[in-house]
Design a binder for these strands. Sequence first.
DNA 1: TCTGGGGTCCTAGGACCC
DNA 2: TCTGGGGTCCTAGGACCC
Length: 448
Amino acid sequence: MRREASVLHLDLDAFFAAVEQRDKPSLRGRPVVVGGTGGRGVVATASYEARAYGARSAMSTAEARRRCPAGTAFLGGRFGAYRRTSEVVMALLRELSPLVEPVSIDEAYVDLAAGPGSDLSVDGVTELARRLKADIAAATGGVTGSVGIGSSKLMAKIASDLDKPDGLVVVPPGSELDVLHPLPVTRLGGVGPATAERLRQVGVRTVADLAAKSLTDLVTLAGRAHGTGLYQLARAEDERPVVAEREAKSVSQESTFERDLTDLAELNRLIDAMAARVGERLRDSALSGRTVTLKLRRYDFTTMTRSQTLPQPTDDARQVATTARRLLAEAGHGGGLRLIGVGVSGLSQYAQGDLFADDSPVEEEASGIAVEAPAAPEPPADRRWWPGQDVVHDELGPGWVWGRGLGRVTVRFEGPLTPPGPVRTLAADDPALHPGDPPDWRPTTMGA
DNA sequence: TCTGGGGTCCTAGGACCC
DNA sequence: TCTGGGGTCCTAGGACCC
């Protein structure tokens, strides 16, 4: 805990949904749910309008559909658009200080004490946050964020959560415990459902209750590391530094299927495809790893992992795939699998095979698909389109997919800088309709 | 039509080594 | 030769986060 409120936490509000509402004017002010739109999808983000009907992150999309009224937009994610917007925000944070720790695409800590601004008084950081929020909204086309500032990561994060959305809370140094102690323990990072239930059983509901427990009690209850952590957080003791660069510890790829799969050849082909993507990502980041992990989720949702550590690190898709296939053969797949994941951990900087790797196109071969899989059947025309997708029509211009089915696709033709636009239903195989790029939300100043 | 996908960190037991 | 102790690696699972 520092003597000044010099740690800032930013949390963008309902971020995915906010980007969708920016780019799709007809959705502004209306309920929007972003996430998996298939039968086994879950909600990634619900707009505040959708939250009013009870839609929540991590809820199954089926449940959100039950709760939300007709006309609610259920969209798959457009991660390229989110990433671009996030980069604009992170760049603004780096103007405050070089020490910026992104936690996720929509969240970051900033160490203001490492920045050029010297006024770390409560008034000073409040004014800084006010300007930051205005800059973010202006640069992103209206995406808002909640800012918390305090004497530690703990307090900054708690503060940003106190007044969502579009909030600004500074916890003055010295008042940490006044803010912390009345809160439910579940507001502390690291207290999830399991820990909350155990704490409840010993009469702990608030952070003040937690602070009354002895270190020994908490270690017994939650384990050595976690118990010690809880003991300190309850006292606002938090010395965790803001860390700009964190090295990746693992790279993985997983997929839940629309229906449970039982066919070994099909499962092996999926392993190959996932291994190919993992290998590609490893090589993109110049990493290789020694431990290959296969994750399986069975028909009954029980989850297991099987791993094997190789003698040498690898970034080779074939080696990852071969290892994962063997792990699957040993683990079995009786009853059917709903999910498979392939991952590599134990990472190091340099790929062992790099010096000798040919740069011929091994990837298709490595995936196994070109070698032994029958050619994937061309998906039906309407399967090319998914809700929320950016498209462009040769005559009608840019727009986005509202829905699809029965050989048709419904598109709304509008963009971030247009008024709400018209809806047209087209043949799914309309040759004039193409996948599009995320639209630019910034008004063009030069002729583009 | 229950329950995504990408991660991190911790624990615990057994193997193995000194 | 009847019983040690510590350290590291590997594997599996669980809790948690966004």
